[in-house]
Nucleic acid binder design. Structure first.
Lengths: 212, 212
DNA sequence: TTGTAAACCGCACAAATGTGTTGTTTTATT
DNA sequence: AATAAAACAACACATTTGTGCGGTTTACAA
């Protein structure tokens, strides 16, 4: 039995969804709320597997609702409900912790399928949204493998990592068993390769490019 | 007309796929290779929209093949072909630059659909893989929204962002129309909130937590 | 009204950084 | 054997940073 909670301000849609879920074997609607606040106040004591949350809600937005709900129960499977497939919004929802989304005009059979999918560890979403996610993903995670241009040597990476950990030149030198001047030398080369002129800029670039 | 290239060592499968693609209106197979090396050597002069690449290849692996192909033509849509839905491998392929994948037993109609999807900017993949991607994604990108504890004020974020761009205190002050001493004051508070003692450490933490 | 937080500003000074120049040694690649 | 690249090391010096202290103003909640 998959326990579903609904947060949707439109009474007609909410009742319709609740009826659909309760009317299907294997599904049960354990809560239907018109706003995030009332949902969140009950969440602690609510046994629920999958949450369907409207994105455009009065009061707290669905995005904020996701963040708060995830803080209370990080293992929650939250699916966003949207009217249009607005990339930006859906994208933000995924960042906030949603595991997928549904457009409201989705036919009942596919809706139930998506709930089951989310329950079983999937992430129901259109391939267009998926592409957006992996694009951003690749830019951060996999960027290193794709752009080995301004590649730092192993030693330089060690220096960068140590720098990002908050060590100063003397501490880096001690850790790597080299002199402070050698650290400076490496830093110099790193700056040249990354086209930067300060620690902060170097660290920012190195992390964003996935070098460290 | 979607121009497709194949890299697959099994002759039977390769010929079958080529026949399917060439036999369908709107699709054309512009190249069929048994290994990455021969594909990569032709890629420069090959006009191709979507690449189907087997993951288990003799010689260079499909993963390495993706990385190299993306270096030559970053705009390529590469779909991996796998026998099993092995999460780890598919995941690596996505990191390397693939935009989706297909299991070999996929029925012809869905295969063509996936190619079209990739061509049109989608990322065909199962929702299980999608979930894996967004999980890792959320851990890095969206971490901030989930942990608004050591939250920086809007002004402090501006200072941090400017810092990560490589500006020094004087430049930050000029950009924000405040005095250098106020910049120092903000930096001080940022350090306190993030529990750090240097620019580098602050920038590293801010980026990794998604604050900036 | 009192308190708390954010944003603002200032001075001082030791410590750390960025960059200039000049080397040696080791390890690959040709 | 020769060339190139990486890693190591040193000295000098102006600039920048981190942190100690001290303040004001504004806004908003208790």
């Amino acid at each position: 039995m998959i326990k579903v909670a609904l947060i949707e301000d439109n009474t007609t849609i909410r009742d319709g969804l609740a009826a659909l879920i309760n009317g299907t074997t294997g599904y049960s609607c354990v809560g239907a709320f018109s706003d995030c606040e009332s949902f969140l106040s009950k969440l602690e004591t609510l046994s629920v597997d999958v949450v369907l949350m409207d994105i455009g809600l009065p009061g707290m937005s669905g995005i904020d609702g996701i963040v708060r709900a995830k803080k209370i129960k990080p293992e929650l499977n939250i699916l966003m409900l949207t009217v249009y497939e607005d990339s930006q919004t859906v994208f933000k929802a995924l960042c906030a912790g949603a595991c997928g989304y549904l457009v409201k005009k989705t036919p009942p059979s596919r809706l139930l399928e998506a709930i089951k999918d989310a329950f079983e560890g999937g992430a129901p979403m259109s391939s267009l949204i998926a592409r957006q996610v992996i694009t951003v993903f690749q830019q951060t995670q996999g960027a290193a493998t794709l752009t080995p241009d301004h590649e730092l040597s192993a030693r330089e990476k060690e220096v960068m990592t140590s720098l990002a950990e908050g060590n100063n030149y003397q501490e880096i030198a001690d850790r790597l068993f080299i002199s402070v001047d050698t650290v400076r030398h490496h830093i110099r080369n790193i700056y040249r390769k990354l086209h930067v002129h300060s620690q902060s800029e170097a660290v920012a670039k190195a992390i964003r490019k996935g070098i460290i």
